[in-house]
Structure formats: C-alpha cells, structure tokens
C-alpha cells in the first residue's frame, strides 16, 4: 500500500493509551489516506474500540499525537471538539441511539446540531432513511426495532451529515450474515462516494471477501498492516 503523505486524513504517531495502569494501546503509529477502506481487527480486548475512540476524542491519548484532517487533537480546545466530531460519522458498537427519540429525531439530531436549515434537514433525513430502508419506521422508537434495524438507523445517523470519515465499531456484531451484508453494502456505498471508512471487527468472514487494508492489533500493539 502506497501512501502519499499529503493524502493522509488520519495520522497517529507513537500513540499510547492507558486506562489507569493498564495499557490498551502501545506505541501505535498509523496513517490512513483519504478514501481508504480500512479494517481494524484483533481479539476482544485488543484495543480496537480504544483506537477508534482516540480518533474522535472519545478518550484522550496518554502519549503520542493524533492528527485528523489537519487538526492536532492534543492542541484543540474544548470548543473545537464538535468541529472535530462532525468530520466523523460513527456507528457505535452499542448503537447509542437515543431511546426517548424516534428514528427520525435520532437521525435529524446530527444536522440540527450542525445548525442546518429545517427544510434541508427534513429532505436529507428522509432520503438517508430511504437508503437504509427505514423510511416507513421513522416514527418508531429504537426499542421497538430489531437489532438489525437499529443498526441500520445507526448507519443512517452516521451517514446523514456527509462526514469525511465513517467509523464503524463491530457494525455486524450481532447480525446474521444477510443483515451484515446489507450493512457492509452501505459502507461500500459511502466509500464509493468518497468517504474514508474504518471498520473495527473480529469477524474474519468480513475480511475475506474484499480487497481492503487490514490492520491487526494484538494486546494493544500494531501486529500487522496488509492489503487483503
């Protein structure tokens, strides 16, 4: 994999992450180019989720530097964190949908928070819900949806703001093969439209079928980085 430096949208330099006394990541150096499709794999506890968190400042690094699209995360002030987060569309391992809000409201929130015009919001939210096939459930509350449906809503929310980078943490974790394939198709679509996509997974099957870059973590260390 050839990486021209100017193309990198994400750079991690000698990043360490410690929770208390326990290292979750050790000396990780990684560059990710614009419009990459990258898998982060490794056993449970290897540090996949932690690595993603460091990118959107879900956690601060213990040591090292992270640069996202020109922003040095160790130098940005509190006030710029929302700006950073809007560069990402994040599909969380546990979905993180707001349970008291409808599907529509959950997705619309991203655009409202970004201060978009109400008419544009409505159009955009409907269109993205249509894409993931959840338009007819848009007034449902998350709890009344199946896991696969909630996952699709999470995908819609991640995509609605046209983010530069999509982070997906175990996006197919609890889904059957078919549902998982649907989600992967969406991610492929975003990739095709120019987004950088990073998927954390331990699902070997997901890796087999495509030509992507695969980064493997083992006990918090970068073990391998290869093109499948």
């Amino acid at each position: 994999m050839i990486q021209a430096n100017s193309d990198a949208i994400i750079r991690m330099f000698h990043v360490h992450k410690r929770y208390g006394n326990k290292f979750a990541l050790k000396d990780v150096t990684l560059e990710i180019s614009k419009n990459d499709f990258l898998f982060v794999t490794g056993r449970s506890g290897a540090g996949k989720t932690t690595l993603l968190k460091l990118l959107y400042l879900g956690e601060p690094v213990t040591e090292g530097q992270v640069l996202i699209d020109g922003m040095n995360l160790s130098r940005i002030g509190q006030g710029r964190i929302p700006v950073l987060r809007r560069k990402f569309g994040i599909i969380f391992q546990d979905y993180k949908l707001i349970l008291t809000k409808t599907v529509y409201e959950n997705v619309a929130l991203v655009l409202e928070a970004a201060g978009r015009k109400p008419r544009l919001i409505d159009k955009k939210v409907r269109s993205v819900l249509r894409t993931v096939g959840m338009e007819d459930r848009m007034n449902a509350l998350p709890q009344s949806l199946s896991g696969g449906e909630q996952q699709r809503v999470a995908v819609a929310r991640a995509a609605v703001g046209d983010p530069k980078i999509i982070l997906a943490d175990e996006p197919t974790g609890s889904l059957d093969e078919e549902a998982a394939e649907v989600i992967m198709t969406f991610l492929d679509d975003f990739h095709a439209r120019g987004s950088t996509v990073i998927v954390a997974t331990h699902d070997k099957k997901l890796l087999e079928r495509r030509n992507s870059r695969v980064v493997q973590l083992r006990d918090g260390q970068l073990w391998s980085d290869e093109l499948h």
């Binding site: 006030g79 987060r85 993180k96 707001i98 809000k101 929130l109 928070a113 703001g161």
Partner: peptide, 18 residues
C-alpha cells in the same frame, strides 16, 4: 436521567450551546 442522551449529542458533534 438524560446523561446518555447528552453524551450521544456530544458524540455526534453537538456544541455545548446546542
């Protein structure tokens, strides 16, 4: 009682003001 919601809002890029 709404801390999850607030946390989620922050994660999707809502400002404190919002």
């Amino acid at each position: 009682s709404r801390r999850d919601e607030i946390e989620i809002m922050r994660l999707v890029g809502a400002t404190d003001r919002f």
